[in-house]
Every structure is written in C-alpha cells, then in structure tokens.
Design a binder for these strands. Structure first.
Lengths: 124, 124
DNA sequence: ATACGTGAATTACATTCGTAATCTATCCCG
DNA sequence: CGGGATAGATTACGAATGTAATTCACGTAT
C-alpha cells in the first residue's frame, strides 16, 4: 500500500480536477476551478499547485512557457487513505455504524437503494 | 442545523471519550485516553481540553480543585458535520460512490451484510 | 531596445494543529 | 508553618493551511 501524502481540504479540489481532466496547465486548472466556484483566487490555486508538487502529489513538465501538471498519486490511493482516516476518526473504525449513519441520514432514492442492495448481494 | 466548531483529528479522541463516558475530570479523561493509547501525554491532553473549551465544544464546571468537562455539542452534530464534509471533499458529494467504495473495499462479515440489507429494506 | 503582459518563483502572514514545558496557585502532610 | 504534590493557566514553537501579494524572467508587440 503506497503511502500517499496528506492532502488538505482545499488541495482536494485541485487534485479532483486533475484526476478528472488529466494533466493540465495552471491556467486550465484555474479555469476549471473557477468554473465551479468563482471565489477561487488564481494566486491561491497556484500556491496549492506548488505545495502539491512539493509533497509529491503532483509533478510537472515544462511545455514552453507554461507547466503541465499531472498526478503522481491516483485518486484511488487518496480516496482509500482519506476514507480510512475518516472512518477511524469519526466512527472509531467501525464500519457498520458508519454505513448505517449514511443510509439513515441521507435520503436515498429507490434506485440507489436497489443498487446498494445489489452491491451487497455481490459481496455475500 | 446548529453550527458545530471544527474538531481536529486529535480533538476527536477527546470528544469521543467525553461522549461515551459523559462529563468527566481532566484526569479521568487522561486515564481513559491512555488506557487505549499509552502515547497520550497528559499535558497534550490538557491542551486539547482548553482548546475545545475555547472553541465551545466543551464547557467545564468547577468541582473543588478539579474541573469537570462536559460536551456542548452532541456526537450526532459532529458526526453529521464531519460526514458531510468528508463526503463533499472526497467524493464530491456523491453518496452512492462513497457507499460503494466502503462496501467494496472493506470486507464485510456476513452478518454485517445482512444488517445493512435490513437497514436498506427499512429505507425503502 | 523597450516596455508590457504573463507565467513561475519567492515571500508574506495570520490561524490552526501537534506537542509539550513552565509558571502559578492551592491543598495536604509532617 | 513550610515544602512537595497537583490542578489549572500561560507560554512555546515549528509545521501545515488558507489566502494571497510581490518579484523576477522571458517572449512579444511597438
């Protein structure tokens, strides 16, 4: 299990863009971020890019003037780590109560319920 | 929906003790913490108590020399907030993928699977 | 060549967090 | 009464985070 660097709350936003769009330049990044949330300040986004490169979550290749950033860690790895940490911290590591919490609190659509039951069947 | 203060990773340990045991003194707290993890340093625990009081997650009443700390926010409130934040951050708010992740990644026992299916039935 | 725009590099700065140590007030014991 | 134990209060201090501004370097348009 590869150790992934710790990704902070806002850094996740950056990573999710890169995971979904693949490698991209700082500007493409910023555009994508601002598309969904105008409050992202370009300078701030740049700072996160640099930090993510420093913590080896991203790398970049020069492409003329601009850099192209790409992920060094997969979404899967980070999701795993964050999920584990969340489960541990908030539910003391107990899976069942955690799942129960979500099933009970978030109203699931009939189809979502069906899908989940399907998943559970497969696990059996 | 009451706004709960942001509880940090380690602060969660403190809160969980107080939620489970109810109000208790600093020393009872520390004993409980160290019971499960000897590496808890008493001074560090005291620091967290103070911080949690400052951020209005705990309050205390004087009981002779010592203080008795009790929760100002419920576990339910904090679990809700943390869960929402986690879901948003890591899964972009999509519940189904999140649940699927856990169901697929953590090996569930047969009985857990049965319980969950039971829960889902009730939601239907 | 020269100033301007643009991207990256460097610097800034308050907060929060992790991790305690030190200071101070008090109580009990001898 | 005086000194140690003990509980809370204050102080410490670096790393991480959120949030940018400033500076530097280079290519391009006058």
């Amino acid at each position: 299990m590869k150790r992934v660097p710790r990704i902070s709350e806002n850094e996740w936003e950056i990573m999710r863009v890169i995971w979904s769009r693949g490698a991209c330049s700082a500007n493409q990044l910023i555009d994508a971020l601002r598309h969904r949330d105008r409050s992202w300040h370009p300078k701030t986004a740049k700072t996160y890019l640099t930090r993510l490169v420093n913590k080896r979550a991203l790398e970049f290749r020069k492409d003329g003037r601009a850099y192209v950033y790409s992920a060094l860690v997969t979404e899967q790895q980070c999701v795993d780590a964050a999920s584990e940490s969340f489960l541990e911290r908030v539910f003391g590591g107990s899976l069942r109560p955690m799942l129960a919490h979500f099933v009970e609190h978030k109203k699931l659509s009939a189809s979502e319920i069906r899908e989940l039951k399907q998943l559970l069947e497969e696990e059996e």
